[in-house]
């Protein structure tokens, strides 16, 4: 393998993910606005918000500890890393073997623990409430997530995303019924983990039912900007993981410069469809009570388990 081209691909992809993440959120919000018969703020709005936040003076609570201001950077760093090692444009990235899908889930858990701790740091009622709910959703979503990933990894006998993409994307086209179950479960987990309806509502700021927003209430200016950017990176990383596992066609192989334009076009198309689909799901459903979340994520878990049993019964 050509190491130099691998590194170029790696840098290219990391920068690309970093830059398109806010666009992804903007696109989802715009689609939702259209579905709700509103004109919407435009797809570039998240960039404007980030720019505004980076220019403001930051305010910290009197008793905020170093953990509080360090967390946005840690969060941003781990989410960027997650976006960088998922094969989005090309496989065989030099950093990709650093983490398989299980380690990716671990990375998301790492970020979640830090944001929850930061939510508890100042010691306000909303912060601790948000942290508690976030950890609750987290422990429900994580097993379901791992189960969908296990099901997906059984076909390629590997938890490495690169191998999964190469087995499914570059092999013969075979229809796996187990993957349908896993995909349904994955979408449900994606909604929960990214604070989307029906688990959490990303567009509220002052609701007693808020989760993610409650934890980050005390953040302002550059810290808030990093937290928001990290959240959009997380959404993008989840969507790209879904793309890599369930619709990997079009992803180039490393060193294949000619494949890059095709890969870029395929990625743009997939992200556009995924974003619109996400908006549609959000427009069609209503936010559920917090204690309905176990049922929702339990269903995701069951779907993934069914997928695994289907794999053992039909596909081996």
């Amino acid at each position: 393998m050509n190491v130099a081209s691998g590194i170029v691909f790696q840098i290219l992809q990391s920068v690309l993910v970093l830059l398109i993440a806010p666009l992804m959120v903007g696109w989802v919000n715009q689609c939702r606005a259209w579905l709700q018969n509103k004109s919407g703020p435009g797809i570039w709005q998240p960039y404007k918000v980030l720019n505004k936040l980076f220019h403001k003076d930051a305010v910290l609570a009197h008793n905020a500890s170093p953990l509080f201001w360090a967390t946005p950077y840690i969060l941003f760093g781990s989410m960027w890393l997650a976006g960088g090692i998922v094969p989005v444009l090309a496989t065989s990235l030099p950093f990709a073997p650093a983490a398989d899908v299980i380690a990716l889930v671990g990375l998301f858990a790492f970020a979640r623990v830090f944001i929850a701790l930061a939510g508890m740091d100042v010691g306000t009622s909303f912060g601790t409430l948000g942290a508690r709910r976030e950890m609750m959703i987290g422990f429900l979503a994580e097993p379901a997530m791992l189960m969908t990933l296990f099901t997906a990894s059984l076909i390629s006998q590997s938890t490495s995303l690169v191998t999964i993409v190469e087995t499914l994307g570059h092999g013969d086209l075979v229809i796996y019924p187990s993957m349908a179950f896993a995909a349904a479960g994955f979408v449900m987990v994606l909604l929960a983990e990214n604070g989307r309806i029906p688990i959490d509502n990303p567009s509220t700021h002052l609701e007693l039912t808020m989760i993610h927003e409650a934890m980050i209430l005390e953040y302002s200016a550059r810290h808030l900007a990093l937290v928001e950017w990290a959240a959009s990176l997380k959404l993008t990383a989840y969507v790209t993981i879904g793309i890599a596992i369930f619709v990997p066609w079009g992803i180039a192989q490393a060193g294949d410069w000619a494949g890059i334009p095709v890969a870029l076009a395929a990625l743009a198309l997939k992200l556009t469809i995924a974003g619109a689909g996400l908006a549609l799901l959000e427009a069609l459903s209503a936010k559920m009570r917090i204690f309905r979340a176990p049922e929702f994520l339990g269903t995701a878990f069951m779907l993934a388990t069914l997928g695994m049993l289907v794999h053992f019964l039909l596909e081996t």
Binding site: D57, A58, V59, H62, G77, E218, R222
Partner: peptide
């Protein structure tokens, strides 16, 4: 290393590019 490098780069980058002041205040809590 990746998390630390990104942490450092972001930290320095944010410090260098935007010299917004840091103020201490009572917790907001809505």
């Amino acid at each position: 290393l990746a998390i630390m490098v990104v942490f450092g780069v972001t930290f320095l980058g944010v410090r260098r590019l935007y010299r917004g002041r840091l103020r201490r205040a009572a917790p907001w809590d809505c």
